[in-house]
Measured scan of single mutants.
Amino acid sequence: HYVEVNGKKIQATSAEEAEKIAKKFAKIYNATVLDLGNYYKVT
């Protein structure tokens, strides 16, 4: 599981952790979290 933010991949140990990381970055960048199955993308 990982999160992609601005083209950078951030490794996460679980889907739950990946979701938390994605939501945190989405809040910082006022962005949207896309759940793409095996990873989250912040756009």
Rank of each mutant, 00 (worst) to 15 (best):
H1F: 15
H1P: 10
H1I: 12
H1E: 02
H1M: 11
Y2I: 07
Y2Q: 02
Y2A: 03
V3K: 02
V3Q: 00
V3I: 08
V3M: 02
V3N: 00
E4M: 12
E4F: 08
E4Q: 07
E4H: 05
V5H: 04
V5A: 04
V5Q: 01
V5C: 10
V5G: 00
N6E: 06
N6Y: 13
N6Q: 07
G7D: 05
G7W: 04
K8V: 14
K8R: 13
K9G: 02
K9E: 05
K9Q: 09
I10H: 06
A12D: 01
A12F: 10
A12L: 07
T13H: 12
T13Y: 10
T13R: 13
T13I: 11
T13F: 11
A15R: 15
A15T: 07
A15H: 15
E16P: 06
E16F: 10
E17T: 06
E17D: 10
A18K: 01
E19I: 12
E19W: 15
E19T: 06
E19Q: 11
K20N: 09
K20T: 10
K20F: 10
K20Y: 11
K20I: 10
I21Y: 05
A22M: 04
A22Y: 03
A22G: 01
A22W: 03
K23W: 14
K23V: 10
K23Q: 13
K24N: 11
K24R: 13
F25E: 03
F25N: 02
F25C: 11
F25S: 02
A26G: 08
A26L: 06
K27V: 12
I28F: 13
I28V: 09
Y29E: 06
Y29R: 03
Y29V: 05
Y29M: 12
N30A: 08
N30I: 04
N30R: 08
N30D: 08
A31E: 03
A31Y: 07
A31D: 02
A31G: 15
T32V: 13
T32C: 12
L34R: 06
L34F: 07
L34C: 10
D35A: 12
D35Y: 15
D35F: 15
L36P: 00
L36K: 08
G37I: 05
N38S: 13
N38V: 09
Y39L: 05
Y39K: 03
Y39R: 03
Y39M: 06
Y40K: 04
Y40Q: 02
K41F: 09
K41C: 11
V42M: 02
V42G: 03
V42C: 07
T43A: 09
T43E: 12
